[in-house]
Structure formats: C-alpha cells, structure tokens
Amino acid sequence: MKTKLIINGQDRALDADPRVTLLDALRNHLGLPGAKKGCDHGQCGACTVIVNGRRVNSCLTLACMHDGDAVTTIEGIGMADDLDPLQQAFVRHDGYQCGYCTPGQICSARAMLDEAEAGWPSFVSEEMDGAIDLSQLSDEEISERMSGNICRCSAYSNIVDAIREIAHEKQGASA
C-alpha cells in the first residue's frame, strides 16, 4: 500500500502492509521512534502525534488512512540542539522521569493549547461559551485536557507546571 505523508514538513513515501498503524510506520518504517508505544490501544497517549493540526493516538489509526496528511511528531517540534520552549519547560520543571511518555505529553500539550486557544471547552469548564483566556487557564483545565496522557512515573504536577508556564506566556506574547 503506497502512502504519501508529509512528516515534519517533509514528503515521505511509505509502501507498507495496510495493517501498519501510523505509529508503527513512524517507528519501524520511517526512522522516527520519538512517538512511543505504551499500550497500542489508545489507552495511554504515549503515541500522540499531531495530524493536520490535531492530536491523535497514532496507534489507533492506519498509516494508509493518512495519504496526503501532515504529521508532526516530537522530532518535528524540536531536536535536542534546538528545543522548542515547551520542551525546554518540560526539562526545567522535570516534567518527566523515565521519559517514555514524554514525546506524547509534549505533542499532546502543544495541540491542546491550540484547542484551548480556539475556545474548545473541556468537561471541567464551568462556562461553555467558547471563550478561553490562555493566561488564565487553570490547573484543573490543564489536567483534564492532558488526562489522555498517562505518566506512570507520575510527573503530573510538574507537567502541569511546564504547560501552565507556556500557556500563560503564550497569551502574553499574542496580546
């Protein structure tokens, strides 16, 4: 099955069994092991990547379903010598321990901030009127929106610290 993907801005051609998930395509076929396999069933979020601007569990979608789609993986957010501010915040706040869920957390957080900025409510939102001030995004909002990413080392409160810092800065920058 021939599939064309735009991964981290580059055209990539894949010719693989249609059973290959987007996650396995990235890890086993395209040399991008940043997205992790934690459960393979959409129950942990370690495989989170951003497809056409939206965070998804790459383990629960077939690569062949994404012909022509733009995929951003952790490698596209920033490499070790050129980290994105969100990645730097994770380092600074120790928003990880073993590091295995981390790429998924960061991809998820990146897209989550866009969702919030677009006014998407969450289950813990008091008001559902489509207006969210990122500079006021509460810890509870961040936690609920990040609950699809499990961290068994349980760096959660540090992860919230890292994301809050970026969320609050982001609004400041765009204001």
């Binding site: 959409g42 979020g45 989170t48 965070r55 998804v56 289950f123 699809g148 990413n149």
Partner: peptide, 11 residues
C-alpha cells in the same frame, strides 16, 4: 467531553 481523551475525540 466526559468521554475518552482529547486525542480520541479528535478521531
């Protein structure tokens, strides 16, 4: 919004 996760709801 009570169901699943942000990632799953996107799909």
């Amino acid at each position: 919004l009570a169901g699943a996760s942000g990632q799953l709801r996107n799909r």
